[in-house]
Simulated assay, not measured.
Amino acid sequence: KKKINCSEVAAAVRKNFPEITWVSARIEGTRLILNIQEGIIPQKTNSNTSPCNLLADKDGVITDMIVRRGIPVKKPGDSCKKGELLVSGELHIMNDSQEVLRKEYVHADADIFISRQISYYQEFPLKYRTEIPAGKKKKEMYFRFGHWYLGLYPTLHTGQKRITEEIPLRITENFILPVWIGWTETTDYTIKEETYTRKEAEKEAVRRFHQYEKKLLQNGIKISENHITTRLTESLCITGGTLLIIEQTGEKSRIT
Rank of each mutant, 00 (worst) to 15 (best):
P154D: 04
S97E: 13
F143K: 07
I132A: 01
I181H: 09
H107S: 15
T197L: 07
K81A: 04
I176R: 10
I118C: 13
M141I: 14
D109L: 09
K203M: 08
E193V: 14
G77A: 01
H92K: 14
F113R: 15
I71W: 08
E204N: 06
G89E: 12
E99K: 13
F124W: 06
T186R: 15
I171W: 06
H92Y: 04
I163Y: 05
K75W: 08
E194V: 00
K203E: 13
E140L: 03
E200V: 01
K74E: 01
S97Q: 10
I118K: 11
T195V: 09
E165K: 13
P76T: 02
E99T: 05
P178Y: 06
G146E: 07
K199C: 00
Y120D: 06
T155M: 14
T197I: 08
I114N: 02
R198D: 11
A205V: 06
T197H: 08
D188L: 11
T130W: 00
E194K: 13
K138M: 12
P72S: 08
K192C: 00
A201R: 03
R207L: 13
H147T: 11
P133F: 11
T195F: 01
L101R: 01
L169M: 13
R129Q: 15
E200P: 01
T190K: 14
P76Q: 06
G77I: 07
P154Y: 09
I118F: 10
E123G: 00
C80M: 00
P76V: 05
R162D: 05
G89D: 02
E131C: 07
G159L: 04
G159K: 04
I132W: 02
F145T: 06
Q122H: 12
I118P: 06
A205R: 04
Q160K: 10
I191G: 01
E166N: 12
G182Q: 08
F113V: 03
E193P: 03
K75C: 07
I176C: 03
I163A: 12
T172F: 06
S119R: 12
S119Y: 12
R102V: 00
E173K: 13
L101S: 00
N174Y: 09
E123I: 01
S97L: 15
A134I: 14
A205K: 02
S97C: 02
V106K: 10
T155A: 12
T184H: 08
V100A: 08
L177H: 05
E185W: 09
H92S: 12
T155R: 11
I167H: 04
S119F: 05
P72G: 11
R162S: 11
K75L: 08
Y105E: 03
E84S: 07
G135Q: 13
I132D: 00
K75I: 15
V73F: 05
Y196M: 09
L156V: 15
